[in-house]
């Protein structure tokens, strides 16, 4: 039976979709059959980040409504074996997500896939609740910034109280913290919360720290998950996080400012 993983945050713009794309691609690269689902009904974006926007025929909502078969809506990634994308509808709204409908799709996907990644919309309303409801594990995407940390705390409360596991009294959803847009230089200057500050407040295990990187914007511009850019710090940090998720013990990289040479410091330029 596949594991259902929700990428969630409460706050918008912290990197849920980027992280969903990166994790799904990372699992598939390691040979795990993976599907990533866009739960942001009406504001479809996962297809753009995955670079398959021109190939969307049917979507998640068509499947829920019985207008298309699940396999017809799944888009097979052209770059990575074992990777599938289930896009959402751009025209409907969140009410199209019924608990029964989503459950039927999840049950079918669990039989086929090892990992099912649910890319949650922002907020704590229906879309976000449906994305987390069936989760076995949750990756809480947080920026080192006060409003994001508080919203993550709120969503952790939702996971503990409103998930199916909570409702059925099963073992709780396993929680992971993914700290994104981390800028070690600003942390060193004391302008940004550091990893330990966030960990102290949220009190859940740290899965990874993704450094602020120009590679992320570049990747979404061209529709290639940033984890495939293995020369970038962000790409490497995502690869590490995926490895940790799968049980490897790796040290956290990119949490301290890189040592820079005299010339680059004088010129004040960054790559």
């Amino acid at each position: 039976m596949g594991q259902i993983i929700v990428m969630t945050s409460g706050k918008g713009g912290v990197g849920k979709t980027t992280s969903s794309a990166a994790f799904a691609t990372g699992f598939a690269l390691r040979g795990h059959k993976t599907v990533v689902i866009d739960f942001d009904v009406g504001l479809r974006n996962l297809d753009l980040v995955m670079g398959c926007e021109r190939r969307v025929v049917f979507d998640f909502i068509n499947v829920i409504n019985g207008e298309a078969k699940l396999y017809q809506a799944l888009i097979k990634d052209k770059r990575v074996e074992n990777l599938y994308i289930l896009p959402t509808s751009q025209t409907r709204d969140k009410d199209a997500l019924t608990k029964e409908g989503v459950e039927a799709v999840m049950d079918e996907l669990r039989k086929e896939f090892e990992f099912i990644i649910c890319d949650s919309p922002a907020g704590i309303e229906k879309g976000a609740l449906m994305a987390l409801y069936f989760a076995d594990q949750a990756v809480v995407v947080t920026n080192p910034e006060v409003s994001s940390v508080r919203d993550s705390d709120r969503i952790l409360g939702m996971l503990a109280a409103r998930s199916r596991r909570a409702e059925l009294g099963q073992p709780p959803v396993i929680e992971h913290l993914l700290l994104t847009r981390y800028d070690p230089i600003r942390v060193e200057r004391g302008e940004m919360l550091n990893v330990n500050d966030v960990l102290e407040i949220l009190a859940i295990p740290l899965l990874g720290v993704i450094p602020e990187s120009q590679a992320v914007l570049r990747a979404s511009n061209v529709g290639v998950p940033v984890i495939l850019d293995d020369t970038s710090n962000a790409g490497m940090a995502y690869a590490d996080a995926v490895a940790r998720f799968l049980g490897e013990q790796l040290e956290h990289r990119f949490v301290k400012p890189e040592k820079r040479g005299l010339f680059s410091r004088l010129l004040g330029r960054t790559a």
């Binding site: 705390d153 709120r154 409360g157 503990a160 109280a161 709780p172 407040i201 009190a203």
Partner: peptide, 27 residues
């Protein structure tokens, strides 16, 4: 015994309340 997260309210009517974990801002 679990962390009381932001937005949650816990009431112990007629008695004591013991929390063996942290209580987040907003709870």
């Amino acid at each position: 015994s679990e962390v009381v997260r932001s937005g949650r309210q816990i009431y112990a009517p007629g008695g004591d309340l013991v929390v063996t974990a942290m209580v987040s801002a907003g709870a």
